[in-house]
């Protein structure tokens, strides 16, 4: 199905509008015309916003930056699915050719207690940063590193660490989870570091510290729905949650200094 730039589509959009964090939001209906099948979903929203601004109305606020699926900024729930219908695709990489002309599309923000709405479709995901600050790192002082090849890493371990490290921190896993759990996000980071020899020294405390913070931030518990993996635009596997659970057990059983 090649994009025919001369063809133009139109849609009815039902979009969550909320003027401020503590304001009451509602779904509002808009019509957008002159959409080319080659447009990305966000470019379709650009068209809507240009017309709203032209009419002196406030454009719809949504987060975005790289528009190529890597920064993790874009964060829309489309017709009930985080990042929309295409697998392993962020909403900025979703193209309108996947929709049929005249369709009605519902657009909402990622929803979770830990991700309060700031405005329209823009949410506050700073809880993720606070979880990382609690243990999502290897404590190394700039300048103190040994020669990079002094630490060898088996190729398959490096590959698996990279699979986990590919997380873009968008929060789709949280939005997709019926419990708003952040276990895939935390599991991915803990796995990335636990798999590597460099990550061993802090292994026993890392998972426990991050999960404690996760609980404090108001994320829910994992009850194995695996919706997170289905929604993840980077295909991060729930194996990482299993590994996180093993890391937690390991941490809990580790001898501790008093």
């Amino acid at each position: 199905m090649s994009g025919d730039p001369t063809s133009s589509m139109g849609f009815t959009l039902k979009i969550w509008r909320q003027s401020a964090p503590d304001a009451k939001g509602t779904m509002e209906t808009y019509h957008v015309a002159d959409v080319s099948p080659d447009m990305s979903f966000l470019e379709m929203l650009d068209v809507l916003n240009e017309s709203l601004i032209g009419e002196g109305r406030e454009p719809v606020a949504f987060d975005h930056d790289c528009r190529e699926g890597i920064c993790g900024a874009c964060s829309l729930v489309i017709d009930g699915q985080a990042h929309g219908p295409e697998t392993e695709t962020t909403v900025c990489q979703l193209h309108m050719r996947h929709y049929s002309d005249g369709a009605t599309i519902h657009i909402e923000p990622f929803r979770a207690n830990a991700f309060p709405v700031l405005k329209d479709l823009v949410i506050d995901r700073s809880a993720f940063d606070r979880i990382i600050a609690e243990g999502g790192f290897i404590s190394t002082h700039t300048g103190s590193a040994p020669d990079a090849n002094a630490i060898t890493v088996a190729k398959d371990l490096a590959e698996r660490a990279m699979d986990a490290a590919a997380c873009i921190g968008c929060g789709a896993c949280v939005a997709a989870c019926p419990n708003s759990a952040a276990m895939l996000f935390v599991g991915a980071k803990v796995s990335h570091l636990a798999l590597l020899p460099q990550g061993q020294a802090e292994r026993n405390r890392r998972g426990l510290a991050m999960v404690a913070r996760m609980d404090q931030e108001g994320f829910g518990n994992c009850t194995n729905h695996f919706e997170c993996m289905a929604a993840c635009p980077k295909g991060i596997s729930v194996e990482n949650i299993a590994r996180l659970n093993r890391e937690l057990l390991r941490g809990a059983l580790a001898p501790r200094r008093v």
Binding site: F137, T140, A145, A148, I151, T152, A154, K155, A158, H192
Partner: peptide, 21 residues
């Protein structure tokens, strides 16, 4: 030094079968 620093931080650089970068 940059490569040393990043490897120590756990940046998952591509590796050869022997484990070297």
């Amino acid at each position: 030094s940059i490569i040393d620093q990043c490897a120590a931080q756990g940046v998952p650089f591509a590796r050869e079968y022997g484990g070297a970068l």
